[in-house]
């Protein structure tokens, strides 16, 4: 379970979330509808431990994110960037494989097989040997997602995955994502924008006045 307690996220004088407390159930899917500059990405990054809240705490299964060591954070939490998220000097394949080799998560053979399988399902198998600058936005997000699904964390945070996708692609990608979610039972928190699909979610929220408000 991911728990946010009295969270304030602030950038200089701009407070995006204040006194936010929320629990995300284990193995649930939550969609958070975001607008422009309302802090959706910052909220996900805070949950991932990438940025620290100005006040409050984030805990995963009772352990504060700040006290979890790097190896456990890598195994348990993964964040998929809305843009970028890949290191430009490595190929797509190496971007996906590097963290796994670094943390010794799988053997090289296992890594190769897992990347190949998931990349094929997400439709980017042909793009594994290209460099990030050769990808468009959608493919960059799919590369991020491939890395996350290969790692198979307990908590997966996905930032605006669906933007720019055709309806067919969106359906196919979400099917893969929800299939993996059911199989691996990870907690999925995804930000969405207007026009994105969210019917597959167990919980739906929107950001309103520095808080999360439930929607239908």
């Amino acid at each position: 379970m991911l728990e946010l307690k009295d969270i304030r996220i602030q950038f200089e004088n701009n407070i995006v979330f204040d006194d936010l407390s929320h629990c995300f159930d284990t193995s649930s899917i939550t969609c958070i509808k975001t607008g422009v500059l309302d802090g959706g990405t910052s909220l996900l990054k805070c949950c991932a431990g990438i940025i620290k809240p100005a006040l409050g705490s984030v805990s995963l299964d009772g352990r504060s994110i700040e006290n979890i060591n790097d190896q456990d954070i890598f195994n348990d939490i993964n964040f998929c960037y809305e843009s970028g998220g890949l290191v430009s000097i490595f190929t797509v394949y190496n971007n996906i494989a590097l963290p796994m080799v670094y943390h010794g998560k799988y053997t090289e053979k296992e890594i190769r097989q897992r990347i190949k399988d998931i990349a094929k399902k997400l439709g980017i198998a042909d793009l594994l040997q290209v460099e990030p600058h050769q990808l468009n936005d959608v493919h960059t997000r799919l590369a991020n997602l491939t890395r996350a699904l290969v790692i198979s964390p307990k908590l997966l945070l996905v930032d605006e995955l669906q933007a720019g996708m055709s309806p067919e692609m969106r359906e196919a990608v979400l099917e893969v994502l929800t299939d993996y979610q059911k199989r691996d039972e990870f907690t999925l928190i995804m930000t969405t924008t207007a026009g994105d699909e969210n019917s597959f979610a167990d919980y739906r929220y929107k950001i309103f006045e520095q808080h999360l408000v439930e929607t239908t």
Binding site: A48, D70, I73, G84, G85, V87, S88, I89, Y102
Partner: peptide, 17 residues
């Protein structure tokens, strides 16, 4: 400099590399 400008060190940090 390029990696820093485009926040790519953050990407490594997010993967705990």
């Amino acid at each position: 400099g390029h990696l820093k400008l485009y926040d790519q060190f953050d990407v490594l940090h997010s993967q705990r590399v």
